[in-house]
Every structure is written in C-alpha cells, then in structure tokens.
C-alpha cells in the first residue's frame, strides 16, 4: 500500500464497569465497590485501507474496544481519534456528525441488528436520510430526494449481491447470510471509510461465511475501506487481517503484521491460541492442549495476567505487569528468553 496515512488512533483506552452489588446490600455486608476492568490501557492505530483485527477469547474485551472506537460506548479513559478528530460517545456537534458519517459498524447477529418491522429499503435508506447522500471527494451533504435515495438503495443492494427489488421485502424473508449482506449495505449507505465489524460471520454457516468474507474483501478493494475486525476465530482473522492485535483480559498482549504474527507468534498466549485451533491439517494428529481457562476480569491475576496458564512463567511474571514494547507484552519474549518455535 503506497499511502500510509493513519486513519484511526487509539490511545490508552480504558473501560471499567461497576459490578458492585446494590448499595444497601453492600453497606450491610461492608463490602467495597467492585469494578471490572473490561479494557485496560489499549493503544493501536489503523492505517487507511488496512484491516486491523483484534482476536481474543470471550471476556478479553475485544467487543468493548470496538464499541468505544465507533463511539457507542464512552471510554473511562484514553481517547480515540479519527483523522485527528476525537470521537466521543454522545457528542453532537456539526463536526462530530461529519466525522460520524464516516464510521459504521456491522454486528454479529443479523437477526437482531435489522428492525423486523421495517422494509429492507427503509433500513438501508436510514443512514442516507440521517447523514445525506454521500458525495465523491467529500463534498457537503445535501438533502436527498426520495427518488435519489431509492436509486442509491438499489445500487447498494446490487453492490452486496442482492437484487434492487429486495428493497420492498422484510428482513424475515432473507436467510442469515443475506441479512448480513443487508447489514453491510446499510453500513455502506452513508459512504463511510471506516467500518468496525464485530464478529460479522460468527452466526453464519461456513459456506455463507466464505461468501461474506469474500464480499467484504471485494468491497474494501473497490471502495478503499478501512476495517476494524473483531473475531474469536483465528482462521477468519488470518484470512481478513493485514495487522492483528491479540487481547487477553483487557490488554493487548501482542500486536503486529498479520503474516509475521501468524508465522512467528511471540507471546506465549498467541502461541497457545494458534496451537489450539482445530484445523483440517490436524487429521489424526494428537496435541497437548494448554490447561486452564481465561480468569475472571473482576479479579485478574497479579503481574502478567497470563502467568497462571503460561508454562514459561518465572518469578517476575507473577509480580510485574509486562508493558507492550515492540509489539509484545511479555518479559521473556522481550529478553529473547523464550524458546524458539519448533514444530
């Protein structure tokens, strides 16, 4: 990629949720307030035209990051800027609206993200009505005529592989894969350049997943889109991402170029994840899975959060939280003390 403009910058993003019991119960039991650190100091940036993927197991905080990046959820600390404009949940200035039209989101469940009482045409037209018709070269919005809106909806449906006459139907008349196509058409309606996708294919069957992933890559090429791609499925991430961040218990433990990270994972957690993916090439082979499960983020382990499951852990891992230096947050990897991967 020739242009290496940074589109999205995320700095020290943090989000805590108050998970205390009700005030009275707490007072009677003399309990302190309890907080869950869902996201604990995450920083990364996304260059224009690339796909930055965040992988992690459930509870790692990856969806919370996506929601904060698009401004659906307020950050406790840290900031997100898109083209140097800071995104804030709930901001409603003219400037904020102009930036927001450039950001869209695609959700996991296409059965929940489309209003069942609206016709598909209305669902896709909504962002056009809210933000105005997208103009090439970032021109100013104008109020779209119903005729122009209808034409644009037809174009969008064609773009995602549906028929313009589908605009008159309701979501229940479509299969899961087709609904996800509708959700993509809606996301594209306002002419965004950045789309956050939260597990966009997890609810779909494999053959349909392949269709949607191919469509997303085609659209990215055609429209020059930038993706933030959230997934727990490493094979899907391998297929989509140009850069990858691996999250564990609210922190990025490794970040890097996708090809590099998949070929030579540095953090022991990344290695474990890659090792445990059931793969077609594993027919008849046996392996030793890593013991244990992701701990509760309410009461994370001291030091490096991964140390209880890490077979390389030494004393320092139990005391100090390793900072993310040079793309990896691991004491041993930073010192070059991890054994080389030899399969």
């Amino acid at each position: 990629m020739s242009e290496a403009r940074t589109l999205v910058e995320v700095e020290g993003l943090r989000r805590t949720f108050d998970v205390s019991r009700p005030w009275l119960t707490r007072m009677l039991a003399r309990e302190p307030q309890r907080f869950l650190k869902a996201v604990d100091g995450v920083s990364f940036d996304i260059k224009a035209g690339e796909t930055f993927a965040i992988v992690g197991e459930s509870g790692s905080g990856k969806s919370t990051v996506a929601r904060m990046v698009v401004g659906l959820l307020e950050a406790t600390a840290g900031k997100v800027t898109i083209d140097r404009f800071e995104i804030r949940a709930g901001a409603d200035s003219v400037e904020a609206r102009r930036v927001r039209r450039r950001i869209q989101m695609i959700f996991q469940d296409p059965f929940a993200s489309l209003n069942p009482r609206w016709r598909v045409g209305d669902i896709i037209a909504e962002p056009i009505i809210a933000f105005g018709m997208p103009k090439p070269a970032g021109g100013r919005d104008d109020a779209p005529s119903p005729e122009a809106t209808r034409r644009r909806v037809g174009e969008l449906l064609g773009l995602v592989g549906l028929d313009p006459v589908d605009a008159r139907k309701y979501p229940h008349q479509f299969s899961g894969g087709q609904r996800q196509r509708i959700a993509i058409a809606r996301a594209l309606a306002a002419g965004p350049d950045f789309i956050a996708c939260d597990e966009p294919t997890s609810a779909l069957d494999v053959s349909v997943q392949a269709q949607i992933l191919n469509l997303m890559r085609d659209l990215q090429e055609q429209l020059g889109l930038t993706f933030l791609f959230i997934s727990h499925n490493l094979s899907v991430v391998r297929h989509m991402a140009t850069r990858v961040g691996v999250m564990y218990l609210g922190k990025l433990v490794e970040i890097g170029n996708a090809a590099e990270l998949f070929a030579r994972p540095r953090h022991p957690y990344t290695r474990m994840l890659l090792d445990s993916v059931p793969d077609l090439s594993m027919v008849g082979k046996d392996r030793t899975p890593v013991a244990g499960e992701i701990p509760s983020p309410i009461d994370p382990p001291k030091g490096c959060a991964f140390h209880p499951r890490c077979k390389f852990a030494v004393d320092i891992c139990r005391i100090d939280v390793p900072p993310l230096i040079d793309g990896v947050a691991c004491h041993l990897a930073q010192d070059g003390r991890l054994p080389d991967l030899s399969s």
Partner: peptide, 24 residues
C-alpha cells in the same frame, strides 16, 4: 468439496475463499 474449500486456514491468506453460491 465446497465445504472444505470454504474454510479459511491458518496457513496462508488466500486471495479468495472458495464459496458455494446461494444457501441450503
């Protein structure tokens, strides 16, 4: 055949995944 080919693998980043058009 289509089902096996549609599964993304960890090994490489395919240019395109083989896809089966339509749905069941």
């Amino acid at each position: 055949q289509g089902l096996m080919a549609a599964i993304p693998t960890l090994e490489t980043r395919a240019v395109r995944l083989a896809q089966i058009p339509g749905s069941m």
